[in-house]
Simulated scan of single mutants.
Amino acid sequence: MHRITVIGGGLAGLTAAIAAAEAGAEVTLHEAHHTLGGRARTADAPYRRNEGPHALYKGGPHWTWLARRDLIGPLAPLPPLEATRLRLRHHGALRRTPPLAMLKLLHRATRHHAPVDTDFLTWATELAGEDGARAAAHYSAVALFHHDPGALSAAFVHERLRRATRLPPEAHYPRGGWSTLVDRMATHAWNLGVRLETLSRVDTLPEDSPVIVATSLDAARRLLKDDSLTWPSGRTTLIDLALHPLPRPRSIGGPPKGDAFAVSDLDAPGWIERFTAQDHTLAPAGEQLIQGQIPIAPHQTKADGVTRAEQLLDLGFPDWRERLTWRREAVATARTGAVDPPGTSWRDRPAIDRGDDVYLAGDQVASPGLLCEVSFTSALTAVSLALGRTCLDREHT
């Protein structure tokens, strides 16, 4: 029987532990915190917020992997009426539909191959003009959270824009927050015989078994003492709010008025979402939980992101200051997954195989996918390599 050590108990670590145990390995997982989940943790009640807005995209192979093991669990569907409440800020005003130039770009982009070695803004401007290109780039921030998506590889941004605008939407929300998904994965791992060690910080790698380092890239760099483990990521201001609901009297001949479901900023990257629109369990009865993630540049501060978030709140959530019951702000650095500059792709990121039976898994390493999909696919690849096989059995992919 193979023995494998997994360091890190987030989505990547749990996926690696499950896949290795299913393949017959004896697995020990070490997590430095007292709870599993990594960035997929959900805060305790009364406000069950995730570490920034989260959604599980249905189009990736990880969805099938989770579904085959009955790990996805109950989802919180967005009511049809709420789905009509997506709002877009463009040229300072709130609107219900994308600008014509952006729609033209989305239509034309489906018939063109986006190049790896050209930035998205340059490529998209040639297709539909600068205004449409900038609006589309900023909208794509919902799937990459970078302060300047237009400066990234056209192929990288286009794929995320395509996934984020697909109909019906790919984004789904585990009922009760991401911790419910983490709990199901942890229970499944435990039932497979995985030894789950929390409050277990690892400072020295074990020498008697292959090791999968499923931490952030920064933590992996320190643990492995390898300065080459770097890759660009996003930096964001997180803002979480609880509000009393806005009275929603019905207008004559129209739908009830009220808060937006979400506000996407097309003037600059940013996204504000009312998570209780689809899952009322995330906040006490009579309150709304709103979360925003505003990308900020390296020279900008948390306050810069808060200012932009409040501008979106002013547009999409009338009188929100008078209805405020709770608020939290934070800055997240290098926690939004890898972003690929022009001339690079996922293949150029830090390799999974680090030699000497050490393997990386996480959302900034050399593996394809959207957001947390990179963690899943890199974890499966790491297990495959650790077990000395070219790929996992079909049963486990």
Rank of each mutant, 00 (worst) to 15 (best):
H33M: 13
G258T: 00
E197F: 03
P341K: 06
R111G: 02
L289G: 04
A334C: 08
L223I: 14
G343Y: 05
L36Y: 05
T35R: 15
I7T: 07
A361N: 01
G60L: 10
H33N: 13
I296A: 09
E273Q: 07
P341V: 02
A76Q: 05
E287W: 13
T301W: 01
A19S: 15
L78M: 13
G38L: 07
T28H: 03
I290M: 12
G234C: 06
I352T: 04
D240Y: 01
A76R: 11
E82R: 15
H33L: 10
W178P: 09
S200Y: 12
R222Y: 10
A76W: 11
A93V: 13
A12V: 11
H147K: 04
G292Q: 07
G258D: 02
I7C: 01
S179Y: 13
E287Y: 03
H34P: 01
L199R: 07
R274Y: 03
H113G: 01
V358M: 03
Q291A: 14
D279L: 07
P149V: 00
L324S: 12
D131Y: 04
T276L: 01
A128P: 03
H146Q: 03
G355Q: 07
L205H: 02
A214F: 12
A366P: 11
Q278G: 10
R349F: 03
P169I: 04
R347C: 12
G73W: 12
L387Q: 07
A164C: 09
V365F: 11
P98L: 02
L199C: 06
L282I: 05
S264Y: 14
G73S: 13
S384A: 15
L238A: 11
A40N: 07
P168I: 01
D279G: 06
L106Q: 07
S251H: 10
D183Y: 01
A16W: 03
R335L: 14
P256W: 12
P174D: 15
R41A: 09
I72C: 12
A45L: 00
P256L: 05
S264C: 06
L385M: 13
L14N: 07
A17D: 06
T125N: 04
E310W: 09
P169V: 01
T15Q: 04
Y57I: 02
L229W: 04
G52R: 02
L371V: 08
D348C: 10
L360Q: 02
I4Q: 00
R166C: 13
A25Q: 04
P46A: 06
D117F: 08
A128L: 13
P149K: 02
D44P: 08
S264Q: 13
G292P: 00
S233C: 10
A40W: 15
T215P: 07
L370R: 11
V306F: 07
I4C: 12
R248M: 04
L370T: 15
R108V: 15
T230L: 09
F120W: 05
M185L: 14
A164G: 14
A20H: 00
L121I: 03
P53N: 15
E322P: 04
T35P: 00
G355F: 06
P232H: 05
Q300A: 05
G37A: 03
V202W: 10
R134Y: 01
P249F: 05
G337R: 10
R162W: 14
L56H: 02
N50Q: 09
